[in-house]
Each structure stands twice: as structure tokens, then as C-alpha cells.
């Protein structure tokens, strides 16, 4: 039985990152009704940001969050101004579809640019403490991944607080629910969109940093992470950041179980099948709270 439990521990650890990846996508999707399929590529770039800071400046990857997150905020703002801000003028159905197409083009361009900048090789940030392992009840818990899980939870919780307490956080939630009513209460909806997109990108950057520490990055990981985030968003629904985080944990555990039962190569398939079934079962349900 130990292999299963060991798998579950590892599944839980990566599940936290799934949750963090999904939180950013969910925020953007829920508020702007824009499906950014380049979210995974933004995660990938966040990972390379941390990798660069470590390789060139020797900055500890966890400390580099303090650089990556603000940089990603700015990058998100730029992406909104140059690309996604154009899409939000369209009615909702066109908006989702066009955003999907734009995200797709952006994903290709970012991936190609990353290959150029960092080659197609797999990389990861290997710190001095990378190999540290905690043993709890006979189960191995890699310390770096445990720290990543804790940080992912802290970031999701932080976003929750921002949305609950901050004046513009509430404006973002109001915009997500009913943008016309938000306009009528005097909220500059465009600015709420911009902020939500920038926050979503910042979360992607943070997720990428954590991925580069405990796991590995390469230019092609984008699609995989977009899919993971989408699966979690579909499973957890929109509206609650902590719910999304829990959804990520559930996906991590489900993958662990399926890897044990069906074999390692199938760990991804189960999530995708569930995703498709849930999607078809409630084809218009994603926006329904």
C-alpha cells in the first residue's frame, strides 16, 4: 500500500500548484469572460523568470517571487492593453471565442520565443536544499515541494483577501457578477478588467516560479498547464479562489490514484476524461454560480 500513499502525497503536493495555476485562469475567465489559453505559457515564462534570476543573479527561487510577481503584474497589464482589452468590447459569446483564438496565437508566439531564448531543453532551479526530504510516517515529503504547496495556498488565500477586502477587489467581484450594474454604481469596468487580468498573470508567474523549483520547465509545458488549469476551473466552478485551490488538490489526488491503478502514463487521461464529461454534462454551466 505504501506506493499508493506515497503517490497521494506527491499528488497533493503538485495539486497545490494546479490550484494556483487555475486560480489565475479562473479570475480572468470569471471577470472578463475571456478564456486565455496562453495561461500555461505565462506560467512557463514565470518559471524561466525564476530560472534566469537564479542562474544569472544567484537569487533564491522563493525570494525571486518578489521580483517575478510584480514583473508579471506589469506584463499582464501590457497584455491587456495590447491584446485582450480589444476583445472585451464584443458580446459575450464572440468575446470568449476571440479571446481563445488570440490566446492561442499568443501561446504559439511565446513558446517559439522561449525556444529561441532558452532552447527546448528541460530546466529546473536546483538549489542547495533541493534534495532535502522529510520523512513522515514512512512517507517521503520533498521539502521544496512542501514549501511550494504552502506558498501556493498562501497566494490563493492572499488573492481571496484582496478580492474580499480591497476596494478594487470588491469592484472586480461586482464586475464579474454584472458589469452593467457595476458601471451603474460608478465602477470603471475597464479598469476592473485590467486589474483582474494583471492579477491573473501575476498568479501565473508565481505558479511558474514554484514549478521551476520543485519540478521542471521547458518551452512546451504551456499547453499541459493550461489544460490542468482548465480542468480545475471546470471542476471547481468560478467565484471562489479557495474552492479553486481545493479543486487543484483534488485533481492532484485523482491523478495519483489513476497513476497507481492504470499505470503512470495514464495519469493525465483520467483528468481529461472527467473534464470532458463534466463539460458536456453542463455545457453552459461554467458561468453559473
Amino acid at each position: 500500500m505504501t506506493p499508493l500513499f506515497q503517490q497521494l502525497v506527491l499528488g497533493l503536493l503538485i495539486g497545490g500548484l494546479y490550484g494556483l495555476a487555475a486560480a489565475g485562469l479562473s479570475l480572468v475567465f470569471g471577470v472578463l469572460k475571456v478564456l486565455n489559453v496562453a495561461h500555461g505559457q505565462l506560467i512557463m515564462l514565470g518559471g524561466y523568470g525564476a530560472f534566469w534570476l537564479f542562474a544569472l543573479r544567484g537569487l533564491d527561487p522563493f525570494a525571486s517571487l518578489a521580483v517575478v510577481i510584480p514583473a508579471a503584474l506589469v506584463a499582464g497589464g501590457v497584455l491587456y492593453w495590447t491584446l485582450f482589452g480589444w476583445v472585451v468590447r464584443a458580446p459575450e459569446e464572440t468575446r470568449v471565442k476571440n479571446s481563445l483564438l488570440i490566446g492561442f496565437g499568443l501561446a504559439l508566439a511565446l513558446e517559439a520565443a522561449a525556444v529561441r531564448l532558452w532552447t527546448a531543453d528541460e530546466r529546473s532551479v536546483t538549489t542547495g536544499y533541493a534534495g532535502a526530504v522529510l520523512t513522515v510516517a514512512g512517507l517521503a515529503v520533498p521539502v521544496v515541494r512542501l514549501a511550494s504547496l504552502a506558498l501556493a495556498l498562501a497566494l490563493c488565500g492572499g488573492l481571496h483577501l484582496v478580492l474580499a477586502r480591497w476596494r478594487w477587489g470588491r469592484a472586480i467581484r461586482a464586475t464579474a457578477e454584472d458589469w452593467e450594474a457595476a458601471l451603474m454604481t460608478g465602477i470603471d469596468v475597464r479598469r476592473a478588467y485590467l486589474l483582474a487580468f494583471a492579477l491573473g498573470t501575476a498568479l501565473a508567474g508565481a505558479a511558474g516560479t514554484l514549478v521551476s523549483v520543485g519540478y521542471s520547465i521547458s518551452p512546451s509545458i504551456g499547453l499541459e498547464w493550461t489544460l490542468k488549469a482548465l480542468i480545475v476551473v471546470v471542476l471547481a466552478g468560478l467565484g471562489s479562489m479557495l474552492g479553486t485551490f481545493v479543486g487543484g488538490l483534488v485533481l492532484g489526488l485523482a491523478e495519483a490514484v489513476s497513476a497507481t491503478v492504470f499505470g503512470g502514463p495514464y495519469r493525465e487521461v483520467v483528468g481529461l476524461v472527467v473534464f470532458f464529461v463534466v463539460l458536456v454534462a453542463r455545457p453552459r454551466g461554467l458561468f453559473v454560480r
Binding site: 470588491r170 467581484r173 461586482a174 457578477e177 454584472d178 452593467e180 450594474a181 451603474m184 467565484g239 454560480r289
Partner: peptide, 13 residues
């Protein structure tokens, strides 16, 4: 300020 038709409250808040 306006009280819109159908109230248009932020129902989840």
C-alpha cells in the same frame, strides 16, 4: 444614482 430595473444587485455578495 440609479435603482435599476430588476434591482441588479450583486447577488453573491
Amino acid at each position: 444614482a440609479v435603482v435599476p430595473e430588476g434591482r441588479r444587485l450583486f447577488g453573491a455578495m
